[in-house]
């Protein structure tokens, strides 16, 4: 088989990068929670899918514009995040394992609840420009992917500025570097952890809304996004935001080329393979060393 270069390095690459930007946003909530609370939130993917459904229902029941629906879904994600943090995370954070177990329980509860409430039918959000593209030279840029990419990168940039330039943002980073020492300086660690947890679920929700614009989704798709987030974090190395963006792009490229050459059925296999290779090559593991410590 011979593929024209312009397909290989044009269309395919551009599509991969646009998807990769969204993967970065998909990941960042997981990285934030791990950095600030040392909790591996196994239910991260469910927050994404919940965000997808919330945006879906807002747009289809209220008839509002899909992008506006994603914005309107923010308080819903925030509320869910607050409740989950209150009931499941606080109080059990003393032990490292407990939140992993309880977040796995949360995964099952959320998945089952969404299946019961909304069935397993695949859904997606159709927009007026779902089928539209713009031509740039020989390359077609699907508008919807451009939007998802632009929104993702904009949010990540704003988050980066927030974490590095604002006082609260620096306190968040301080907690992720040494929460005990932050507490002894009068920084209200628990309040800020709650804030970060809610922020993370909001970011997951927004990324879910964008996913819903691009792909069809079901209640059971959460773990797939958890897997993608793991791959991005394994790629990101030192878990800073530029690293997460780079990791997202690499995953997007890996998946796109993988499914192009191997068939789209193997898309997730490519992600798994990337994860396994990374873990073998970096035996300290996903969160070894300083990875993800510093968000």
């Amino acid at each position: 088989m011979i593929f024209p270069l312009e397909v290989l390095f044009g269309q395919l690459l551009v599509g991969a990068i646009l998807l990769g930007g969204l993967y970065s946003l998909v990941t960042i909530g997981l990285a934030l929670i791990f950095g600030v609370m040392r909790i591996l939130n196994i239910a991260h993917g469910e927050f994404i899918i919940f965000g997808a459904y919330t945006a879906y229902w807002i747009t289809s029941l209220m008839g509002v514009d899909p992008l506006l629906a994603i914005v309107l879904a923010i308080p819903v994600s925030a509320f869910l995040g607050y409740i989950v943090n209150r009931l499941l995370i606080r109080g059990v954070t003393k032990s490292f394992d407990a939140p992993i177990v309880s977040s796995f329980g949360l995964l099952l509860i959320m998945q089952a609840s969404m299946l019961i409430a909304w069935t397993g039918d695949p859904r997606s959000i159709v927009t007026p420009f779902t089928a539209e593209s713009i031509h740039v030279g020989p390359v077609l840029l699907p508008i919807i992917r451009l939007i998802a990419f632009a929104v993702s990168i904009t949010i990540l940039t704003l988050l980066y500025i927030f974490l590095s330039k604002t006082y609260l943002g620096r306190a968040i980073r301080a907690i992720s570097q040494d929460s005990e020492s932050a507490a002894t300086l009068g920084i209200p660690v628990q309040k800020i952890q709650t804030f970060t947890f809610v922020l993370s679920t909001v970011l997951a929700g927004i990324s879910g809304g964008l996913v819903a614009l691009l792909l069809s989704f079901q209640p059971t798709f959460g773990p797939e996004f958890l897997l993608k987030s793991f791959v991005v974090l394994a790629l990101a190395g030192v878990g800073n935001i530029p690293g997460v963006i780079a990791g997202g792009l690499i995953l997007g490229i890996g998946e796109s080329y993988g499914s192009f050459f191997l068939g789209s059925g193997l898309r997730n296999v490519v992600a798994y393979a990337m994860l396994i290779i990374l873990l073998l090559a970096r035996p300290r593991g996903l969160f070894g060393g300083r990875a993800v410590r510093e968000v």
Partner: peptide
């Protein structure tokens, strides 16, 4: 117990 990845100024400010 310094915050290693923050600057000296940021450490003090916190």
């Amino acid at each position: 117990s310094v915050f290693p990845q923050l600057t000296v100024r940021e450490n003090l400010q916190l």
